[in-house]
Each structure stands twice: as C-alpha cells, then as structure tokens.
C-alpha cells in the first residue's frame, strides 16, 4: 500500500504488514513452484507413473492366481487381486513422491534453494508446511492419473468379433461400473491428503537430519522397501499373520499400513471397518478407537504420525534448537 506509491526502486521505510493475504500469496507461490519443477522434470512424472503401473499390469496379474482374497471390509464381494492392490500402489506413489521431495530438499539445501526459502520473513513452520503441501499436491496429480489408468485397465474389454467402436463402447460402459464407485475418487481425497502429509512430514524430518544422501538407493533400501513390504499394501494382514506373527506385529506398527488402509476405505466412502467386523480386530489388539460403531484406528494413527513427524521437522529446522546449526548447516564453511 505505502510502497506502491513510492517512486520506482526506492527502499520502503516501513514494509507492508504480512497479513492473511500475504500468507495466501506465499503458500500459493511455494505450491506453484513445486508443481512447475515437477512438470519440468518429465522423466520424473513418467517414472512415477510407470512404477505402480508395472506392479499393476505384471505383478498383480501374475499374483492373482496365487493369492485368494477373502471378503474383508471394505469389499462386499470377492475382489480381484488388482482391485485389492490398488490402494497399496497409490500409497506407493505417495511414498516415493515424499521420499523424492525429501531428497530434493537435501539437494536444495546444498544448492542454497532451501536458504532462499528460509530467508522469507514468514514463520518457518508455515514455510515448511507450505513446502509440504506443495509436495502433496504434486503427489495428488500422480495418484489421480494412476487411478484413472488403473480403472481403464480394469474396465478394458476386448472381443475380436466386435468392431473397434463396439469395443470402445463396451469399455466405456464398464468404466462407469467397475469398482470402486466413481464417488470413491472424491471420498479418497482426504485420505490421500492426510497420507501424503504424513509421509511428506516424515520425509521433511529425514531431510533435516540426513546430512548428505549419496543417492536414492539408500533411501530405497532403508526406508521405502521396508515400509512398503511390511505393510498391508500387497497382501491382507490376516494372510501375513498366518505365516508370521512377528511380521504381522511389525506391519501393524508401520504407519504406512494405516495410510494404505485409510486410502482403501476412502475409495469406498468409508474411514474404517464397521465395529462388528472390527470386533475380531479389536480382540487382536488391532483397534483402539471405535467411534459410533466405526473403527477409526487408521485415521487416528495417520493424523497422530503426521503431527509427530511435522513437529519433529519443525524442531529440526528451528534455528535456535535445530539440528542444522549443530551440523554446520547449508553451505557453511564453503
């Protein structure tokens, strides 16, 4: 306001107050930059999409005959393995995206882009949260692209006797009716955002404590693979329990399991199993939060972990208490 009236290039004696509008501008700016960066890295978009699709097209097709999935909530009927594994693969997209953005943050810290962000006058926790939301937004773009392709894959019908047009019409017909219901794509959105935030804040915390990441392989081996395989992404937990109780317990403690389950139920417009089905789970010590006949354990765990990881990340980036200063910081001594 005051500054606009000044002649070009003069110093503002009193800068504008950072009001609500300023915060919105800042948030949008950060999210916009994340999206632009992602769009400029086409190979990243491509590989982010190919990875889960390979799992869906090849692994799931091969695994279909090996693993029988019984009727467990949220499914009301027997489902194909492809349908079962879809939420897990969406979780995988979120996980990879979060770890990749964590890696880029370490890289940012080395090149100084992180310092550009941190000299912004806004509170540091707000800046980090904005950065996180930018990453989640990018993950959402990937997840929905995958979901559409996966649905098309499921709806695919082809008969060589019919004409191409008939085949397309049949596929289109199927596209509208295969699992999950189209409204599921809307109801899964909160689950995706929450899970994305949880994994993103974990990654953000990792980026603040990891001084240098030589390559992505380390993160793959020590974070992504254990989190992904020791979860309910690829197989139902009761199956795991049959082979190893210890592994079952590890899966139960894995926050990623809860994120995948939240997405799974979200796709069917639910947030957890109804309590009568959950009774057995409760007896196993699996659930601890039953509200109005619905088991909300997954929601509670994901929200709780998000707050915990985010708090840890903000602490680590806090200039007076943080770990950056102790570790010599970005570019210091260079």
């Amino acid at each position: 306001m005051t500054t606009a009236a000044l002649p070009a290039g003069t110093i503002a004696e009193e800068p504008d107050r950072l009001g609500f509008g300023g915060y919105v501008t800042c948030l949008l700016g950060i999210v916009w930059r994340e999206v632009m960066r992602f769009l400029h890295q086409r190979e990243r978009f491509f590989s982010a999409l190919v990875r889960p699709l390979i799992w869906l097209f090849i692994f799931a097709a091969g695994f279909r005959q090996v693993l029988g999935v019984s009727i467990i909530p949220p499914y009301s009927t027997y489902v194909l393995y492809e349908t079962f594994v879809m939420p897990g693969l969406v979780g995988m997209i979120l996980l990879f995206n979060a770890m990749q953005s964590s890696l880029s943050m370490v890289y940012d810290r080395e090149t100084g882009a992180m310092r550009t962000l941190l000299v912004s006058p806004f509170p540091r926790s707000f800046l980090l949260l904005s950065k996180l939301l930018g990453g989640v937004f990018v993950a959402l773009l990937q997840a929905y692209t995958f979901l559409v392709i996966a649905r098309l894959w499921e709806a695919w019908t082809w008969s060589s006797q019919d004409s191409i047009l008939t085949n397309i019409a049949a596929t289109w017909q199927q596209f509208g009716v295969v699992d999950p219901h189209l409204s599921g794509y809307l109801t899964v959105l909160p689950a995706l955002i929450l899970s994305g935030l949880m994994l993103g804040s974990l990654a953000l915390f990792m980026s603040s404590v990891i001084k240098q990441l030589e390559n992505f392989a380390g993160v793959m081996n020590f974070v992504i693979f254990p989190m992904f395989f020791a979860s309910s992404a690829l197989y139902p937990l009761w199956r795991i329990k049959e082979s190893s109780v210890l592994l079952y317990e590890i899966c139960r403690l894995n926050p990623f399991t809860h994120a995948v389950e939240l997405i799974r139920f979200g796709l069917y417009g639910q947030i957890g199993p109804p309590v009568e089905q959950a009774a057995q789970a409760a007896a196993d010590g699996w659930s601890f939060a039953v509200v109005n006949g619905i088991d909300l354990t997954h929601l509670y765990v994901v929200v709780g972990c998000t707050l915990f990881f985010l708090g840890a990340a903000v602490y680590a980036y806090n200039p007076s208490k943080g770990l950056i200063g102790r570790r010599g910081g970005a570019g210091a001594g260079a």
Partner: peptide, 25 residues
C-alpha cells in the same frame, strides 16, 4: 548467497515471482 540459488528450469520472471510470493507481495 554464494551458491547459485535460481531455478534453472524456470524463467527469470518466474524465479522473481516466486521470491516475491515468499515475501507475501
């Protein structure tokens, strides 16, 4: 800063607009 901190893939203007957003302009 001593190290290069511009986004290589963005235009000059986009880089500057990002920075302006960081200051709530």
């Amino acid at each position: 800063f001593q190290s290069r901190t511009l986004d290589q893939d963005l235009t000059l203007k986009q880089n500057l607009m990002y920075h302006a957003a960081l200051h709530g302009i």
